[in-house]
Design a protein around this nucleic acid. Structure first.
Lengths: 133, 133
DNA sequence: CTTGATCTACGACTAACTTCGTAGACAATT
DNA sequence: AATTGTCTACGAAGTTAGTCGTAGATCAAG
C-alpha cells in the first residue's frame, strides 16, 4: 500500500474537511466542538473519524503534543472538483450546462455574483478564440 | 405512514431512475439489461431495487401483465434540483457561484452553450430589476 | 502519591445499501 | 400432464458508514 492516494470522502468526512479548511489545523476537541454546533456528536466519534481519515490520507497529523493536531491533506479546490465531476456524471449525466442553469436559476444570485460569472464567460470566450497557444 | 414522500435516492437508485427517465416505463428485464451495459448486475438485484424504490414511492408500477412495468414517480428536474441543493450545501457550502465557476472552468463548454448561459444571465438580471410579482 | 481530567487506540454495535439465492406462481411447449 | 423458462416475492448475507464504550497513557493538581 502506498500513501498519496486521494479518495472520495464520505458525507461526514467532508463535514470534517470543511472544518479543517475553514479553521486550519485543529485538535480533535476543536473539530468536535465545531461539529457539535451543527449536530450532537460524541468526542470519540470525531476522533475515530479523524483516525480513519488519517489512514486514508485525507488528513495528516502532528503528534508532537499529546493532543494531535490534524490538518487537511487535500485541498478544498481539488476535492470540490473531484466531487463535482462525479456529481455531474451521476446526477446530470455529464451536462455541465444543465447543472449551471439549475444552479443559477434556483438560487438567488447577487448582481455582483452575476458580474463575476459574466467576466468568466468573457474569459472563456477569449480563450476559445485564440485556440492553442 | 403516507405515500407521496419523495426521498433522496441512493447512488444505485439514481442509476435506475436515469434509465427510466431516458427510456420511459420499463420492465425489470429491460432495466436490468440497461444496467448490464454499464455494470454486471443480477436480475433479482435489479428486481429487488425496483421493489424497494416502489416502497419508497420513487417509482410506480403497472401490474397488469405478469411482468410489471415500472415508471419513475419523480421527475428528473425535481430530483436534480433536490440533489443539487444538497450537493451545493455539503460540498460548496452553499456558494452557487463557486460551483458554477468550477463547472464552467473545468469542462469545455461550446460557444453555443456559453450563449445560453448569457441569455440566462440577462434574464436573471431583468427579473431582479422589476422585483416582486 | 493519589485523584481527576483529557487524550489515543481499539473493538463492537447498529443501520443502511447492495447483492443474490431460493421458492412459488404462471405460462408456453413438448 | 410433465418440462422448461420467466416472473415476483422474500429472506439472508456481505459491505460500508457512523456511532460509541471502554481501557490505558499522560499530565496537572491537590
Amino acid at each position: 500500500m502506498e500513501n498519496t492516494a486521494p479518495l472520495k470522502p464520505t458525507e461526514t468526512e467532508l463535514e470534517i474537511l470543511q472544518i479543517l479548511w475553514q479553521h486550519g489545523p485543529s485538535t480533535v476537541r476543536f473539530v468536535n466542538e465545531e461539529q457539535n454546533k451543527v449536530k450532537e456528536t460524541g468526542y470519540t466519534t470525531t476522533l475515530k473519524l479523524l483516525q480513519i481519515m488519517f489512514e486514508k490520507n485525507l488528513v495528516s497529523r502532528d503528534e508532537e503534543s499529546r493532543s494531535h493536531v490534524y490538518r487537511a491533506a487535500v485541498t478544498e479546490d481539488e476535492t470540490q472538483q473531484r466531487l463535482l465531476d462525479r456529481f455531474l456524471d451521476t446526477t446530470f449525466r455529464g451536462s455541465a450546462m444543465k447543472l449551471v442553469m439549475q444552479a443559477l436559476g434556483n438560487h438567488r444570485t447577487t448582481p455582483d455574483e452575476l458580474n463575476q460569472i459574466r467576466h468568466l464567460l468573457k474569459k472563456l470566450e477569449d480563450d476559445s478564440s485564440n485556440a492553442d497557444s
